[in-house]
Design a protein around this nucleic acid. Structure first.
Lengths: 194, 194
DNA sequence: CCCATAACTAAACGATTGTTTAGTTTTAAA
DNA sequence: TTTAAAACTAAACAATCGTTTAGTTATGGG
């Protein structure tokens, strides 16, 4: 005969939101495969056991890192959503994003884009779904801004949204390789005639 | 006291150029890290020992694969070099490249770009050097074509070459994720006002 | 026909991967 | 104070990584 225990027993010595942000930064810098559980232990400052207790496994740890990344990126996305300056706001977002990825001379890219580049056909389905969802969300925001420039027909808006989301995808990767000057040339040319 | 032997002893049962092309295709599809020696054995059709005998190690095998990839890509680069149609030839190269990467619905990207996306700060120096060299070579060709449109000032040519090489870099990654229609919209917009 | 040698097969190497498990410590309700 | 449960530490797990090595087979000049 058991009685239900409502005790908390021992307290957690870490805050999940805090350690997952550290994990996120490690994944962002290193990618999924290259980041080992041992590295996560050190970076997150907790034992493997605790990682598994809190997030299930490496994959769960990563999925939670993506959520954290999205929140961080929202600091750039929300101003874009709320702006009514149309394409000019998108251009600003491009520049903000480059700043967002910069650590030293070269950037870390975008965690989502980095993962999309790394993952293959046999990659985890949950992760792949998350990547597609993210891309569609951003494209949706671009579309809204393009619609603010009322002189555009719907078909052209769709085409330009494709152009912009792929340009953004490319920019994310490019921050890891190209210099600030080159990235500026890139962005300026994208928006030169849009 | 030794005498010099000029005998061939046993013959190789494979042609290095042939097996390295198979390795190249595997690296192209899967990336460097995800491709294991075991997979290379099966794909190349030869024993690990033979891979090490011919190419030193996994890294050597990969570097040789990049050489092989460059040769394959030359089928697209050479017509571009020899053309005198300026920007129009570059645009054609973009479309040719998409075709070049297509296997089924989505593309494999560019082996060089895939590697650039995968590799981190601690990546092999020989590989990183090879990637930079390749990028500079392509940019140089773009610059030549831009110079054929004589109405452009040198400074603008440099800026547009940056724009185009990053656009190409982005396109390479994008073939792995976006549909043909979206890629077409992307390319059309790149060259709309250049 | 020898036989030195290169190319083969297959097993084993140590290191590292992600994950689990056994044992100890801390917690707070009873 | 006792005690069940949660959170910790640390060791071990099987699997796989890239690489090496021991032993066998095939080659062709002497």
């Amino acid at each position: 005969m058991y009685r239900i225990r409502t005790t908390m027993a021992r307290k957690k010595e870490y805050i999940e939101a805090e350690v997952i942000e550290k994990a996120m930064n490690l994944f962002w810098r290193n990618g999924y495969e290259t980041t080992s559980m041992h590295m996560l232990e050190k970076e997150m400052g907790i034992n493997k056991f605790s990682i598994y207790a809190s997030f299930g496994n490496k994959n769960g740890d990563f999925l939670e890192s993506i959520k954290c990344y999205k929140q961080k990126l929202n600091k750039l996305i929300l101003p874009l959503k709320n702006s009514n300056e149309g394409v000019a706001a998108i251009k600003q977002y491009f520049y903000d994003f480059v700043e967002f990825t910069k650590e030293t001379e070269f950037g870390k890219g975008c965690l989502v884009t980095n993962t999309a580049n790394e993952i293959g056909e046999n990659g985890d389905e949950k992760i792949k779904t998350e990547l597609v969802k993210f891309t569609n969300e951003v494209k949706q925001v671009f579309t809204q801004k393009l619609e603010q420039n009322t002189n555009l027909e719907p078909l052209k808006i769709e085409e330009q949204a494709d152009f912009l989301i792929i340009s953004m995808f490319g920019l994310s990767s490019a921050t890891r390789v190209f210099s600030n000057t080159q990235l500026n040339h890139y962005i300026e040319n994208i928006f030169k005639n849009i």
